Computed example of a mutant assay.
Amino acid sequence: MTATKKYLLAWMCLQLPLLAHAESPKPANVAPQLSDAERYARRCQSQAPHRAIKPQGTMLWGTRRHWDTEKGADERSSVLVSANLNPLKQSNSQVKALKLEGGRLVAASTTALAPVPPTERGIIGSVLQGAASDGSPVEVAICGAEPSAEDPGVIWYRIEAWNAVAQEWENPCVALDRVPDPRAFAVSGVWDASGNHHDPPDKITFACENGAITKCIRWGYNPWASRDGHSMADLHQACTRMARADYCGNGRSHTHEDTALDIYDQRGVLSRTTESSADWDVARASFEAAWAPDGATCLARTRDGRALATILQECPNRFRTDTSLELGKGDRCTMRRTDVDPATSLLRNQSYGPPKDVSSQSDSL
């Protein structure tokens, strides 16, 4: 064998391991799997003190749509839509289950659900079994608790959910500039992709600070409370439709982030604004829609400037346009439900009309 052939043979032998490595790359963006003990040990490691006033916008739960921020997802998708109170995946030795009393989670210590002494510390670190909107399981940890400044009987919870792709505990709530580390309320029942509320036993929603479920509670519509002998649950549900401009009651919003609203209801929780301020210009505002728990009962216009015809296409046979209706105090519907009397609506709202240049683009939104 010549020297040249020996050199070539040696060079090829050196290249074989490199070629074999190149032919079997590791999956991208997939972290190594952790054991249960390692996973639970890493929960609740970060704290952030930032708190601010919530903006108004499109989100129902206020949660991320997908763990992959670069992956597009429908607005009716969420990484966390529900959590089970019993059994717990992980907790301290005394806490065996949780109960929801109003807006507060209470620890229980036995199968008979005898309460642990009322302290928020007892449930910190508890891990609940939750679910995403597609039904996939997701664990959620309670990392902190603090009373609401507006109502000390309601507790803000700082939560983290297990991101199985990144193998990290992360806050599932969407962060915005004014609320960079959002908290969550614990609310009875679950909301499905269409925005309908259901109340299965032992299931709750961790409603994040930037979502409509929590906004409506902060506006005064506590679903666990009552006013003048009437449950506030229907008012709260109607508010979640109104906050997102979900006219068809199908979970689709027709608004934008930071949209200003004036809300008023039949039970006197919120009244119509009659004087201008730095936050609201009465002269610019006009009636938009009246609301029931399953969506709008009538409309004068859309909030984001779409033509009313697009709403008729989105939910055919739901509305009629052959007659207008006066609701009083200047509120006039130009499109009304076929199956509901708009005069019985629980809520109404005003908003600012869309900019003139929006109407020409509205059908494509």
Results as ranks from 00 to 15, higher is better:
A41Y: 06
T334G: 06
A193P: 02
D279N: 14
L176P: 08
D246S: 05
D279Q: 13
C298D: 10
G125K: 11
K5E: 14
I213W: 05
S351T: 13
W162H: 05
R183N: 01
A149M: 13
G268K: 06
Q90K: 12
A278L: 15
T297G: 15
P118V: 05
A37Y: 02
V106Q: 13
S351L: 01
S276P: 15
A10M: 13
L18E: 03
K215F: 01
S364T: 06
D304N: 12
Q94N: 08
A41G: 04
A41Q: 13
T323A: 15
A164H: 11
P342W: 10
E257V: 03
S35Y: 10
A260D: 15
P182F: 04
L308P: 09
A343K: 14
T63I: 04
Q350N: 14
T259M: 14
K89A: 12
A207V: 03
E120N: 12
R42A: 14
A289N: 07
N210P: 03
L80T: 03
H230G: 01
S364N: 12
R178V: 00
E160N: 03
T69C: 14
A290N: 15
C248K: 10
S91A: 15
K329P: 01
G125C: 13
D322T: 09
A132V: 00
Y157N: 03
D294T: 05
K71S: 04
G102W: 01
A283W: 13
V165A: 14
D36P: 15
D134M: 05
P117E: 11
S188Y: 08
R301T: 01
G72C: 02
E23N: 08
A300M: 09
V190M: 15
S362Y: 09
H254I: 06
L98M: 07
P200A: 05
R301G: 01
R348P: 00
P152F: 08
H198I: 00
E160H: 04
T344A: 11
V358H: 11
L14G: 12
L176I: 07
G353W: 03
R244V: 00
E150H: 03
W291G: 00
P27L: 11
A145V: 09
I142T: 06
